[in-house]
């Protein structure tokens, strides 16, 4: 199997879906000739031409609104918003239409579109280019919200998202784009949307995370195993909405202790929903308070201070240890 970065894996998913299905079209700012500012759509315009790879004018609302129309027409638009920090310019199209057209038309019209967009910090980027605002979309009824964590699941989930009959918001962790390679099979591979996976098995504590935080979490888990003999089970959520809590609650019942990691601000973050599910469904199994290691409730600092804002392996490991030491 070839080893690929997440950028290459996403590119493979797009290329293969476009080859298989002429309903799939790609649109967004700089996605054609430039191949996308992160090169995720590289080469697609050469293969499929400007009718299927649209270098649009600079207007997020138009990109998403037009995608909705294309989807209603029967196409499968995959639009790219250059950075998640600019999706606010298309927010009304998502909330007022993409998420609710199926319901508003009582099943007559559907919106099988994907909105791909890079999110998250750690790459020394400009203002508005580093935030983690996945809850805005995870909170919205009528949307699916997917965040892959590595090349292989990114490829498989993007294929599933394109084939999904409903709108999918697909956040790509830009810190992972080129951070490492994984084997990605050339032959088709999909992954169910709405399922979490165990990224690392363990019996002492459950650590729940997703996206760019999976790697530092696994690193912390390895360190704890090596240095302390503590075995953390790491759950990679993958789909924030609809949140599959069966795996999370099963793991929590097994270990009795839970730590949640995300780079989004803490208040009303994904960790809050996950904690609520645990309280509702696994409360009697918990032996320690649920802990969160998250971004702070502040405007994401510019890059000189972003490392102090982001959870890191040391912080994660410390929180996990403290959770294990907490009296039952």
């Amino acid at each position: 199997m070839p080893k690929m970065t997440m950028v290459q894996a996403l590119n493979l998913a797009l290329r293969q879906e476009m080859e298989k299905d002429d309903r799939v079209v790609v649109l967004g700012e700089d996605v054609g000739v430039d191949g996308g500012v992160f090169r995720v759509t590289e080469g697609l315009i050469d293969l499929f031409g400007p009718d299927r790879v649209l270098d649009t004018p600079l207007a997020e609302s138009a990109i998403v609104g037009m995608s909705i129309g294309m989807a209603v027409y029967g196409l499968r638009p995959v639009c790219e918003i250059q950075f998640s920090g600019f999706t606010y310019l298309n927010f009304h199209q998502i909330e007022c239409h993409a998420s609710r057209l199926r319901h508003r038309s009582q099943g007559r019209f559907t919106v099988p579109m994907v909105l791909r967009t890079p999110y998250g910090g750690g790459v020394r980027a400009l203002e508005h280019h580093s935030e983690s605002r996945e809850v805005f979309y995870a909170h919205m009824p009528g949307l699916k919200m997917v965040i892959p964590s590595g090349p292989r699941n990114a490829r498989a989930l993007l294929v599933s998202a394109i084939r999904d009959p409903d709108p999918v918001i697909f956040f790509e962790p830009k810190a992972v784009y080129r951070a490492f390679r994984e084997e990605v099979p050339e032959e088709e591979e999909t992954m169910p949307i709405g399922r979490s996976v165990i990224a690392r098995e363990g019996r002492h504590v459950t650590v729940i995370t997703y996206g760019a935080m999976v790697r530092p979490t696994l690193e912390a888990a390895e360190r704890l195993s090596r240095e302390e003999g503590l075995e953390a089970e790491v759950v990679d959520v993958l789909t924030l909405a609809p949140l599959d809590d069966s795996l999370i609650t099963a793991s929590a019942r097994k270990t009795g202790r839970v730590v949640i990691i995300h780079e989004a601000p803490r208040s009303y973050g994904p960790g809050a929903e996950i904690t609520a599910r645990l309280v509702e469904k696994a409360f009697y199994f918990l032996e320690a308070p649920v802990r969160r290691v998250t971004g702070f409730d502040v405007i994401m600092p510019l890059f000189a201070r972003e490392q102090a804002y982001l959870p890191n392996p040391a912080r994660i490991a410390r929180a996990v240890k403290e959770t294990l030491e907490a009296a039952a």
Binding site: R266, V298, R305
Partner: peptide
Amino acid sequence: TLGDPLQMFDHHFEELPPNLREQ
């Protein structure tokens, strides 16, 4: 002289609310 990460809590509100004080 500007390295202090705690500065990230400045200039959000006129008064730091309890959650930010805690964080």
